[in-house]
Design a protein around this nucleic acid. Structure first.
Length: 645
RNA sequence: ACGCCUGUAGCUCAGCAGGAUAGAGCGAUGGAUUCCUAAUCCAUAGGUCGCCGGUUCGAAUCCGGCCAGGCGUACCA
């Protein structure tokens, strides 16, 4: 629809500009509230009314006859106080859409887009909050690829941070384990560390004197040569693999893992620091509360100083992030080395290295960077962009996009189910934020397991004759679809109050509803194959678009058919809108609405039973078009598509 | 204190690049299965769009003020 709209706008502008004082961007082409009123609506008469001091309705009546010559427009109506409604030539448009359904009408704007998402501290298992991040990031990446962008997905590993140090401390000082003993731990290591992390946090609260030892560990880890850094490396790598495994259960994969330890070892910060010092963007403080620190001033704020280098000489997260951000844009004049880390879907996932390797791969050098990070980090993310701005990398600062989203909190029901004892204060709030430190949260793998189990039961109810393998594969697809749709259906500014009942629902506005719609279409095609012995592809090519006849359709069906097709043709527009606003609920809700419209159509119009061949063929072409669009939309959201369920 | 965000149906949320009659899911009530998978569909009930003012031909949408809630303003990330 995007292509048609731009084409129409140009033509309308060409017609109008000779007689009326109007700009092309004043020509808004929107949709009518009801398809009976027309397909596309023009509201420019309202704008012209002011300039010409004339009644908008009169302007509409005057201009509408001029538009009757428009290509693919069948009829032009004046409606309401001054709208001009356009009726598209249904057959011509549908034939065009059938032919081009596999192509996207969008085009790339960037040389490369980097999407950084997931970025979980490698010291514990992933939880539902992290899932929101990864689902949003992965969907953004998929949509950008569909748009035509070259996309690189990075996962940032803070393997030298405080959180890892906590767990190293826990192993060494609470559990008194050696590296060899840690390596012998069997089972899910991320789960083991989840519990250890909570235990350690408590220990440190009860033994504040131990903080000194923890700081020592942190320094040893940062230093990178001490044996304790080997422990940190082992822990963070092993947990990273657990995280990647969890995400792969949802079809989420990566191109590159970027390690903070390598940023330190390769002295990225020094390079960034030199740049900042040279441009006087960072300066040394010799008195006051920030004495001994290197700081950056925040523009627009009074006296706001953000510390980049602490008085003890260590670099803050923000400092390292500025260096990382510069590298993402290819502005650092330094590069990582890379080694293969694991394989995902037969594709190599790379990891950074500080040691020279023979691999020649090309990462970074993006023209646009999305950092998917929760909303609480808005401030440091602003500082990062400000850092680029201070260095006069204005375009890159503009293209440093913080894709922020609200948190996932736990409903009081969920808390009860987890057996968490709420305090009075927490009770009044009604919900509670997930906290890795407190060990409060729903682990991603536990949730996926639970979804799998529930989906398995449902599949088993409907298809008891299937093999267990088939049942469980289908169940996994349904579970994944349910979870991914759930994570996308909320606006990113909306705090998700997580409740098991909501996420475990497979009816109504859910992923399985969308999957089920596709399954029904599949079923029609397989029935057609059984009765007529022709495959989906054969059917479609046999009833080639040229043979399409809408003449046999009664008026009511023609309207229903058209409403469905017109709505489906908005996919590209919805994808673009989702990317522009970073709100993927637009895509989600569009797909859901399309499925609703299809399900209503499905109920009303039979295909296999229909004896009028022309009518049947028209319906087959209709559903095959809808099928393609729904499939594409689900792909963009990472929702799997089982053949049957 | 300052900054950002939120307030729409009983509940969970869309709509907020101003546009025609404010929508969906869940829940409630009633109905549809000899017929392509009922994980579905149809119908009914349910609204001072937090409050007050302004801009406009037109405001849930933009602006100002107020009320209520969340988050942020660390030598944490």
């Amino acid at each position: 629809m995007i292509a048609l709209k731009t084409e129409l706008k140009k033509s309308i502008y060409r017609i109008l500009k000779q007689k009326y004082p109007i700009q092309i961007d004043e020509l808004e082409l929107s949709y009518t509230p009801d398809i009976k009123m027309g397909d596309l609506a023009l509201s420019f008469p309202f704008r012209l009314a002011k300039k010409l001091k004339k009644n908008p309705r009169i302007i509409a009546e005057e201009t509408s006859p001029l538009l009757s010559s428009l290509n693919i427009i069948k009829r032009v109506d004046v409606a309401g106080g001054g709208y001009i409604n356009l009726f598209i030539n249904r057959k011509a448009y549908f034939l065009k859409r059938l032919k081009t359904a596999d192509e996207s009408s969008l085009s790339a704007d960037e040389s490369k887009v980097i999407v950084e998402h997931t970025s979980i501290n490698p010291n514990k298992a992933a939880h539902i909050g992290h899932l929101r991040n990864s689902c949003l990031g992965d969907t953004l990446a998929r949509c950008q690829k569909y748009k035509g962008e070259k996309v690189e997905i990075q996962n940032y590993i803070d393997d030298t941070g405080v959180q890892v140090a906590d767990v190293v401390f826990g192993f060494l000082e609470v559990e008194k384990k050696t590296l060899e003993e840690i390596k012998k731990i069997k089972g899910k290591f991320d789960y083991y560390c989840w519990d250890l992390y909570t235990k350690t946090t408590q220990f440190l609260q009860n033994n504040p004197e131990a903080e000194e030892r923890k700081s020592e560990i942190l320094k040893n880890i940062e230093d990178g040569k001490h044996p304790e850094s080997d422990i940190a490396l082992y822990i963070s790598r092993r947990i990273l693999k657990d995280h990647l495994r969890t995400m792969q259960r949802l079809g989420i994969t990566y191109d590159l893992q970027v390690c903070e330890s390598d940023i330190i070892k390769l002295k990225f910060w020094e390079s960034a620091f030199n740049l900042l010092k040279a441009k006087k963007a960072a300066y040394f403080v010799d008195k006051g509360k920030h004495k001994g620190c290197w700081v950056m001033k925040l523009k627009g704020k009074t006296d706001q100083e953000k510390i980049l280098v602490r008085s003890n000489g260590t670099v803050t997260y923000v400092g390292k992030d500025i260096a990382y951000q510069l590298w993402k844009f290819g502005l650092l004049q330094k590069d990582f080395f890379f080694i293969p880390f694991i394989k995902q879907n037969n594709k190599t996932v790379w990891i950074t290295s500080s040691v020279k390797t023979s691999h020649t791969v090309d990462f970074g050098n993006a023209s646009s960077v999305y950092n998917v990070i929760d909303i609480r980090q808005s401030y440091p993310q602003k500082v990062v962009a400000q850092g680029l701005k201070s260095l006069k990398f204005l375009r890159q600062a503009e293209k440093s996009i913080h894709f922020s989203y609200e948190m996932v909190a736990l409903s009081s029901n969920s808390l009860k189910e987890l057996g968490y004892k709420v305090t009075e204060d927490e009770k009044n709030k009604g919900f509670l934020e997930v906290s890795g430190r407190k060990g409060l949260g729903i682990k991603a793998d536990d949730l996926i397991d639970r979804l799998n189990q529930k989906a398995f039961n449902e599949v088993n109810k409907r298809n008891p004759e299937w093999s267990d393998k088939k049942k469980s594969e289908t169940a996994k697809n349904i579970a994944c679809g349910a979870l991914r749709y759930f994570m996308l259906k909320f606006a990113r500014n909306s705090l998700i109050i997580f409740d098991f009942e909501d996420v475990l629902s497979f009816e109504g506005e859910t992923g399985p509803y969308l999957q089920y719609t596709l399954v029904r279409i599949n079923s029609i095609f397989s029935k057609l194959k059984n009765t007529k012995n022709i495959t989906k592809e054969e059917i479609i090519s046999k009833i080639s678009a040229q043979k399409l006849s809408l003449d046999s359709m009664p008026d009511e069906e023609l309207d229903d058919f058209w409403e469905l097709v017109l709505y489906a043709s908005k996919l590209d527009e919805e994808v673009l809108h989702s990317i522009d606003t970073l709100e993927f609920l637009h895509l989600a809700k569009f797909t859901f609405n399309l499925c609703q419209k299809f399900n209503a159509y499905y109920h009303k119009y039979s295909i296999i039973q229909e004896e009028n061949e022309l009518l049947r063929n028209a319906r087959i072409l209709t559903i095959s078009y809808i099928y393609k669009i729904i499939k594409k939309a689900l792909d963009l959201m990472g929702i799997p598509q089982p053949e049957r369920m």
